[in-house]
């Protein structure tokens, strides 16, 4: 047992190292090819939790552009038997903030699209899109490839995300994935996002802790003041909360959807808490563009409403609780 734990720790360390190296070498972002070369899909096949967690956290810390969400979605779909192949580069079209889908699917099989790609689109990418079906239900469809020229680049709150918007009517819907695959795709994207937000929150906290330990005012390090300490302690608590539920979300369970929803809410809260308190305790320095908090603050704002704002995720949680009729006990000990 102890040996197994050691082996797992070694593997985790090796994966973290190679992921960190990739992130460090990729200031322009991590594309599909880089993930293939890293062996990310094989690792995800063996240990999806480690693969998703490490990649997400490292990307989150570095606030890089990436295709990590797309890769996670395609990998999970492939494993579940959906008609996608991870060897081929895919781009996923996500809903715009406060929109249920990246487009409306019509009864004749055509679709009116308006959604976001993350991390850029390459020519020849296979396309998946989160859309709303004629009955108003969420669905995922495969689309014919789009030309990168059809995609309008945008800066938004964070240009480093390298997001692009695809707008317009498209008749080229190839097919529609099964409803359970559509749900799987959404929770996979959310979970991959949650890891990035946790990574960003950790990095904010690290920067803030370093700053308040070094900076002196009134003859003392500002980190010795309780008002400053308690803010950063709250960040640690918020991150720990998100981490524990993320870890639990990999358990075999019939409540994975709810667990991932909760984990996503907690990750969003963690990064917002980290940004708010990080900015406050870093004072004027934190307000400076060249100070390392800046990219993380922007990243947190870009992603705040992505795949559900705090309010939307809360309402979705309430609906699921209502459907369960109880407040489910996620993963316990022994027999569930």
């Amino acid at each position: 047992m102890a040996e197994l734990v050691d082996e797992m720790e070694e593997l985790a360390e090796a994966v973290s190292e190679s992921t960190r190296a990739l992130v460090a070498q990729s200031p322009e972002g991590v594309g599909w090819k880089a993930l293939l070369e890293l062996g990310w899909f094989e690792l995800a096949g063996e240990d999806p939790r480690l693969a998703t967690g490490v990649l997400g956290e490292e990307l989150g810390r570095a606030a890089l552009a990436s295709r990590a969400l797309d890769a996670a979605v395609v990998h999970a779909l492939e494993q579940a038997g959906a008609p996608v192949v991870a060897e081929q580069s895919h781009a996923v079209l996500y809903p715009l903030p406060s929109s249920p889908g990246a487009g409306q699917l019509f009864a004749d099989g055509s679709a009116e699209l308006d959604g976001l790609f993350l991390g850029g689109v390459e020519p020849g990418d296979k396309i998946l899109a989160f859309v709303t079906d004629p009955a108003g239900q969420p669905a995922v469809v495969r689309l014919a490839p789009v030309e990168p020229s059809e995609v309008a680049g945008l800066d938004g709150a964070d240009a480093r995300v390298r997001a692009g918007r695809l707008t317009g009517r498209s008749a080229a819907v190839l097919d529609r994935l099964a409803p359970e695959h559509a749900r799987l795709a959404l929770r996979t994207a959310r979970r991959a996002l949650a890891y990035q937000l946790v990574g960003a929150a950790e990095e904010c906290l690290r920067i803030a802790v370093t700053h308040v330990s070094e900076r002196h005012q009134f003859g003392r390090p500002i980190g010795s003041y309780q008002a400053v300490k308690h803010r950063l302690a709250d960040v640690r608590v918020a991150i720990a909360a998100a981490r524990s539920v993320l870890a639990g979300s990999w358990d075999e369970s019939d409540q994975t959807e709810l667990t991932v929803l909760v984990a996503t809410s907690l990750a969003k809260k963690a990064v917002q808490t980290a940004v708010a308190h990080g900015l406050q305790v870093c004072g004027g320095m934190g307000f400076t563009e060249e100070f390392p908090l800046a990219p993380l603050v922007r990243r947190a704002q870009f992603f705040a409403p992505f795949l559900g704002s705090a309010a939307e995720l809360g309402m979705e949680t309430a609906r699921l609780l209502k459907a369960c009729g109880t407040a489910p006990r996620i993963s316990g000990f022994g027999t569930p």
């Binding site: 998100a242 539920v245 870890a247 639990g248 909760v262 809410s265 809360g314 309402m315 609780l321 006990r329």
Partner: peptide, 18 residues
């Protein structure tokens, strides 16, 4: 939203204590 927030925090507590 008040109930959802409570449940979210409760799940965090449960997973952390576990």
């Amino acid at each position: 939203s008040i109930v959802a927030e409570a449940y979210i925090s409760l799940t965090a507590l449960r997973m952390r204590c576990r």
